[in-house]
Simulated assay, not measured.
Amino acid sequence: MASRNERGGDVPAGVPKVLWLPSAVALALVVLPVVGLLARIDLARLPEQLGSPASLNALRLSLITATISTALCVVLGVPLAVVLARSGARGVRLLRAVVLLPLVLPPVVGGLALLFLLGRNGFLGYVLDVLAGVRIPFTTSAVVIAQTFVAMPFLVVSMEGALRAAGDRYERVAATLGARPMTVFSRVTVPLLLPSLGSGVVLSFARALGEFGATITFAGSLEGVTRTLPVEVYRQAEADLDSAVAVALLLVVVAVVVIVVARPRALEGVRS
């Protein structure tokens, strides 16, 4: 904790000198690869590469699908986080482990799992195909599902941690005063979650935007339909490395803009 000086102001605790070296190494591991990417850019061809129809279509598709996926993460993930943090039912610990699986599974494995579930020969995909004529793989919907699959655990972990840190004393008081569970959720739990929601949304959007393995496995690479920016980088790397570097730079810039614009607001909400 910060101490107070003679004038009554806060005195920062300072940073131990021993932490500076590993911090510098950690920063180098993050920054230097980006610097290497920047050094590889062909500035003369950059406008042409970034303005190509394939790059613009991939950018548009990535922004649209990542936004939809993030909205689904909020709609589905917030209730799940509340259940994990507040429910005393048996099996919640196992449920939490299952929810966190996408964090540790290779994305390609997640894509295969989705394909075997919703593909034409998957048990749920077969039912959808026979009863409704709906085929999800290799469509834009498949991109959204794949992104939601890998991104939602980030929001759930963030929200559950916020709920556990806040405790349940306010909810207990509201229940004692006769409030129904839904009223407690809408009037007490949701306001407790709002300060941390911004952080979870930023993490989910960034993860959805950069998703590659599950997307290409479950949705494929169809321009304007399933070819997001990460998939476009992979495709360009096989044909024109300079174009792949340019598209990768575009992805980095978009991710940085999202984090810089949204992250400070999320932190302000946490402080308040």
Rank of each mutant, 00 (worst) to 15 (best):
T140Q: 13
R207S: 00
L249D: 09
G178E: 03
L94N: 10
I41C: 01
V130I: 14
V92C: 11
T228W: 05
V201D: 00
L84I: 05
A179D: 12
V82N: 04
R227W: 00
R172P: 07
A39K: 06
V254C: 10
V143T: 07
A39Q: 07
K17M: 08
F212C: 01
R93E: 12
V202L: 09
S243E: 10
P12L: 12
A262I: 02
V233W: 06
G198V: 04
L50M: 12
L50T: 14
L27H: 02
A208I: 01
V258F: 13
L56K: 06
V258E: 02
D129P: 00
L100N: 14
R40K: 09
G167H: 12
R93I: 11
N121P: 00
L61G: 07
A26W: 11
G51K: 04
A208N: 02
L21R: 11
D168W: 00
L112H: 02
R96H: 06
A97Y: 01
V245D: 11
R227A: 03
L61Q: 06
A81H: 05
A248S: 14
R227D: 04
L124M: 07
V231P: 04
S196R: 13
A179N: 12
I41E: 04
R187Y: 05
P12H: 13
I145T: 07
A142L: 03
T67V: 07
R120E: 07
N121F: 04
V134S: 00
Y126E: 14
L241Y: 14
A71V: 15
L249R: 11
T183H: 04
G269M: 09
G161S: 10
L63Q: 10
I216A: 01
T148A: 02
L21T: 13
G111W: 00
D10P: 10
F205H: 01
L177E: 09
F123I: 12
A179F: 11
V202E: 05
L114V: 12
T70K: 01
F123E: 01
V252R: 04
G167P: 14
A165Y: 04
V134Q: 02
R135F: 01
R180C: 04
L193P: 14
A113L: 15
T148P: 00
V98Y: 06
L37Y: 11
R164K: 13
